[in-house]
Design a protein around this nucleic acid. Sequence first.
DNA 1: GATGAATGAGATTTCATTCAT
DNA 2: AATGAATGAAATCTCATTCAT
Lengths: 233, 233, 233, 233
Amino acid sequence: MAGRAARSVTSIGSDGETATPPRRTQQERTAQAEQALLDAAETLFAQRGVDQTSLADVGQLAGYSRGLASHHFGSKAALVDRLAQRIQERFVTEAIDVADIEGTDADAVEILAGLVEDYLKAIVRHSQTGRAFFVMWGAAIPSEATMRPVFATDDARFRLGAEALLRAGQANGTVDGDIDPVATAVAVIGMVRGVAAQHLIAPDAFDLNAAAEACRQFVRKSLTPAANNTHRN
Amino acid sequence: MAGRAARSVTSIGSDGETATPPRRTQQERTAQAEQALLDAAETLFAQRGVDQTSLADVGQLAGYSRGLASHHFGSKAALVDRLAQRIQERFVTEAIDVADIEGTDADAVEILAGLVEDYLKAIVRHSQTGRAFFVMWGAAIPSEATMRPVFATDDARFRLGAEALLRAGQANGTVDGDIDPVATAVAVIGMVRGVAAQHLIAPDAFDLNAAAEACRQFVRKSLTPAANNTHRN
Amino acid sequence: MAGRAARSVTSIGSDGETATPPRRTQQERTAQAEQALLDAAETLFAQRGVDQTSLADVGQLAGYSRGLASHHFGSKAALVDRLAQRIQERFVTEAIDVADIEGTDADAVEILAGLVEDYLKAIVRHSQTGRAFFVMWGAAIPSEATMRPVFATDDARFRLGAEALLRAGQANGTVDGDIDPVATAVAVIGMVRGVAAQHLIAPDAFDLNAAAEACRQFVRKSLTPAANNTHRN
Amino acid sequence: MAGRAARSVTSIGSDGETATPPRRTQQERTAQAEQALLDAAETLFAQRGVDQTSLADVGQLAGYSRGLASHHFGSKAALVDRLAQRIQERFVTEAIDVADIEGTDADAVEILAGLVEDYLKAIVRHSQTGRAFFVMWGAAIPSEATMRPVFATDDARFRLGAEALLRAGQANGTVDGDIDPVATAVAVIGMVRGVAAQHLIAPDAFDLNAAAEACRQFVRKSLTPAANNTHRN
DNA sequence: GATGAATGAGATTTCATTCAT
DNA sequence: AATGAATGAAATCTCATTCAT
């Protein structure tokens, strides 16, 4: 099955190395400070939310001064943007490129089912990053929220990736030709986002692995062409 | 089919009555002021989010003084709780009780598909109330958020309702006996929540009716017992 | 000589009554607080200048909290505007109405000479108010200063008053018909403003009364019609 | 008449030379940087005022780094002092030395009238430098202003120059012997400063050339000895 | 000499809350 | 009950100054 090969949602999170004090160039100093600030912001956003986190808190948790976050990013909005960007860059980047199965006989349904599972598992593995992302995503819901464009774009990117995958699957016969690729993409993305959000709001309320499996079954049973709908549970 | 009858997600929103009917007792005036304050809070939360809304704004938009919201509710947290409660009371209350199909031959899959569709249509119809709900729901994602219990409970209520419905369906043979009712409930609730959130973040990005239809198909194709899986698109 | 009657530049300054604690209505409380805040701002502006005075300083010197000045006026710019307005209202209001000598035989030169003298004496008598005014006037000189319109208007008001007086004097023959009323008004207003500013920058550098007398002589000798130019020193 | 020869208020402003001439010693590069920084400070002070201008702004407008102004001058106060000094050096330096008409028969009234006119014309010609000067002069009005000594000294220098001129005129009979030289000097300097300030606050409110002419007439009519007071308009 | 990163104090502004009316 | 004045804590942002490169 070609699906498994294409996946791997995983490279998330700030992989350590906050130490190493005596670096060299100014550029490196700045870059190091920025990563430390973003790490701190991620932690605090995940814990308290964006509005309950002050820039002074961010600077101090990062091991710098109260003023640095403001000085470095210029504004809180810029910090939020930058963190959203960093998480998006690290999170599930390959998923988008998956549509290059076009012209192959890879099973799009299996790829999508795998992506869904991987996404949810990544939320567990990199829980703080994932929570920070969903916190910001939730903060984008008010109609006048300044963060809306960033997250609208991110949602669109995911939807387009799923849509392309579905179309490719319809082209090579691995996806039911009758489904609406756009609407189905919305539903699939919605499912993973909604399941993840439920988990983050009440982590102990249900078994996320079981829910991930249920999502896979949803995808398989709903999208496999009627003819060869022989999937098992 | 009993399904359709059982639905009706609809009684949402503050249906007008800003005008001043013949005044009555003090108690009633207080109740009226409370409703006006909650209406105003709903509007402002939907627009700006909870943290960007001040109690003074709420009082003034309600047509009262800057100080009334604080005076009436005692604290901002109490206002937020009260509004969350009011929305939850008004929103989809009957859905939960649907599980009383137990012992009948009602088609649980159709009922669930109908609920999914109704929920999403209600979001459109009562967009401000729906947005206010999702704004608060999103604000519950930070791990230390004070609103978490309220929304964790609400999510659980929905999940339990769906789970009961699925179990009843498995009992009367209208739902595939192999699916995990708990995990499937999580997935279905996740799907509607996630689709709604995508819509609220970018209302013009996709056709919500088509997405609702896609969700219905997901439910039908995935949950109908293999034997009589003869649903059409 | 009708001149003396028309003058009186004098009613300047915050005439006492900062005490009297237990007043009644809210309106009165507010008005009292506003006067106290403006008095404090006047003092601090005169001492340190506008930019070196914080709103917190104003509130505290007024005997209130750090936050009141900001709360009451909304912004520092509004406080500055309000204070400028108050000083302008109190300072030399009748000077403007002096032009009503039109149609009489009042000696416009004497009236103007008197106004000049009174203005400079008022600066001495109400030195703090006068200094605060000049501080703000000086702060209006940068080309992008937000205070410019306020003080441009004030300067224009004075110039127009002087111009009207000069025209009236030319009409009744008490002012040299050859002088340019507009340009002369600019010069006279400039003289008093410039003398006052010199005094405020270095109060002990020269005798202001003697300077005031010199200004009177300038006005008399320059504006009296050539025929009856019989003024003595 | 020796008067005209003695004037020339004119050598003001930063006359171009932003281009990079053939580099020379370190000292020269430092001097060049200093001029560029002072030019930038002049521009920014004229636009925004002293307090609204940051050292970083100065460095960057000068084409250097954010840190240079601080590095070069040591503190903001030192930059302000240095700029005030430079403007005073460039502005009307010869005017002061005019008193050397003593013992000649030069007409002091004409010389003074010419100086007044030249000063006001210089303000127009070198508007930015002039505005920067008046901005700093205005900032010296608060009683505790750190700039006061600098500008008190400058005002005194001008007054002394005018006073000497007047005394010389009285000695050679070209100035009315009855006028008080000190007080009259104050009034004349006040007139030009006040007219210039009015112009800077509202450049389009009146015709500065006409005002300059009115100032000349003031000087002539007021100071010429009664006997030969035959000046025309 | 020159750059620019980092600090930390301070300013304005917002706002939940308290209190007087 | 209701108003709205007043408080005081906190947040963002600015910036002179210091320090490392």
